[in-house]
Design a protein around this nucleic acid. Structure first.
Lengths: 158, 158
DNA sequence: GCAGAATAGTTTCACATGAAACCAATTGCA
DNA sequence: TGCAATTGGTTTCATGTGAAACTATTCTGC
């Protein structure tokens, strides 16, 4: 039997359960395919993991802010954020200070080197996204965004 | 600062990089949200992991077949399949024999108990999918399927 | 027909990841 | 005021996961 190139999209007969057209499965496969490609880019060119990149993206836009704010904006938990920030700091890409107003909190920001890397990655990330969307007409893209939003709301309510 | 309930979908200004509207990020968050909900269902009610459920779904439809066929149809690698099948066998849900025509290959199938569990899960899985799609008109659903297909093709080509 | 390459599947090992424990600081309220 | 509960963040520990090694079998081509 030949390997199956990409998840087939056969119509479901109703009687048999067709995994390949089951939405949770399709989302998982798609997300993994995309994440693998993106992760390779960040890793090979910049030595970053996806959690590190997410933190960098948030700090690039909202610094200075606390780790809990980064967590809220990246859909990661505080442990993931703590480790990702530790990784960025170890390479001199992020800076951490304690917030004087509330000494439990940290004040996080990108270093100059981190900002440079961030500014270098952003266009590459946009380009990868553009390749992903290349086959879609502008109206399709808008529709896609709306549909993903609705699905996210339904999924959160499950 | 308040926690952010679900990934916001603010329009991108172009200058700043908006993680929350970055397609790979949105797909990852959505897929994780859905997978978590689905995984909880399988685990709490049936003690199955998602890889185990995927194998069960494929065996329910295509048995008897070899592990490599299961791998091709589930987008998992052979290690994941091996472990998932081991888990199913340990609980008497799957049966394994060696293929007489090619003694490297295995002949996998569901046991009677495995078939019963499968037939019990399928309607629940369909119901969960239906809840996920509840907010979408039939035309939207068709459109969603088409868009996910195009994205999958582009992503595989990255 | 046999030596080397390829394939199917399992196991091992090292590392990543998540849950829970933990420390420090702040808040709430009796 | 003071002390229990909460919050922010890190660390520990136990488990899950992936890459590579390994075994067994079959294919290839000389």
């Amino acid at each position: 039997m030949k390997p199956i190139a990409s998840p087939a999209r056969a119509p479901d007969t109703g009687r048999e359960f067709a995994l390949e057209s089951f939405l949770p499965y399709r989302l998982s496969v798609l997300s993994n395919t995309v994440s693998d490609a993106i992760a390779r880019l960040y890793r090979d060119r910049f030595g970053l993991t996806i959690p590190e990149w997410r933190c960098m993206a948030v700090l690039g836009r909202f610094a200075p802010c606390a780790a809990r704010d980064v967590a809220a904006r990246t859909a990661m938990d505080k442990v993931q954020v703590s480790r990702a920030i530790a990784g960025l700091r170890k390479r001199g890409l992020a800076l951490q200070a304690t917030d004087a107003a509330d000494r439990r909190r940290s004040k996080l920001a990108l270093s100059a080197a981190g900002r440079r890397m961030h500014d270098e990655i952003v266009p590459l990330a946009r380009a990868a996204e553009a390749r992903l969307l290349a086959g879609l007409a502008p109206a399709d893209r808008a529709q896609l965004g709306a549909l993903l939003g609705k699905l996210q709301d339904s999924a959160a309510a499950l």
